[in-house]
Amino acid sequence: MAIGTALLSAARTPRGAPAAIVLVGVVFAAIFADRLAPYAYDMQSLMQANLPPSAAHLLGTDEFGRDLFSRILHGARISLGVAVTSIGASVALGLVFGAIAGYAGGWADRLLMAVVDLTWAFPEILIALVLIAILGPGLGSTAVAITVGYMAQFARLARAQIIALKGETYIEATVGLGAGHAHILLRHLVPNALTPVLVAGMLATGDAIVLEATLGYFGLGAQPPLPSWGAMMSAGVGQMFLAPWVIVFPGLAIAITVVAINLYGDALIDALQIRNRLREG
């Protein structure tokens, strides 16, 4: 099934439908955060610090009196934006390395996979912390850290797909027509290997949001006053008992988004019938 039709049919399953609605909502919030937010995300009002949810402030305010609802909408833009772009870069790099390794085989494969396996051997958070220690905190370093941290799984998955496809008769048939390596790779192998890697990328976006939030929580990601969900939670720790909404709502935003991504991704895997192709990684 083509990935376009699969996206739609996954959204019609009992598991996929609510997840798809949530995801469309989150993406919508991220794109139109400027228009939807009732207040600027950095507008302080110390007189109105730590207010509980009310009609004026739907989700309450934080210690500086900033509107939490506005900050969560803007946080969606940052958290989602960082996760999606870095996973995108990660998938692209993983595809390039995996395709070359799988197609070339031999020493090129062993060399590339040795490097990839080295990053595969450590938890993503550890790789991220090391990279941020080198690059310094900030959104850019967070993006680099996520890109590198998750690349190994895409490279391995792409490589496994390419190796499996390499033995197909249509590849031999195309070689028989006189095709060169570029034609074989770009016209046949990569397009056929793409779907499982893209779906794995989508599922990893959920993990990447959590990693971005974790780094933000440690103060290594988005720097104040930029609202990222993780950074907002860490700001809420101090008032956990005085104003629990400051930590609870960003936490809920993370949880709901990640659960939606996983549910929808799962429905998509079923719609595309590629569960067995995702195992190697």
Partner: peptide, 8 residues
């Protein structure tokens, strides 16, 4: 013939 044409 089933596998000698790229399915895409």
């Amino acid at each position: 013939p089933y596998s000698s044409i790229d399915p895409r």
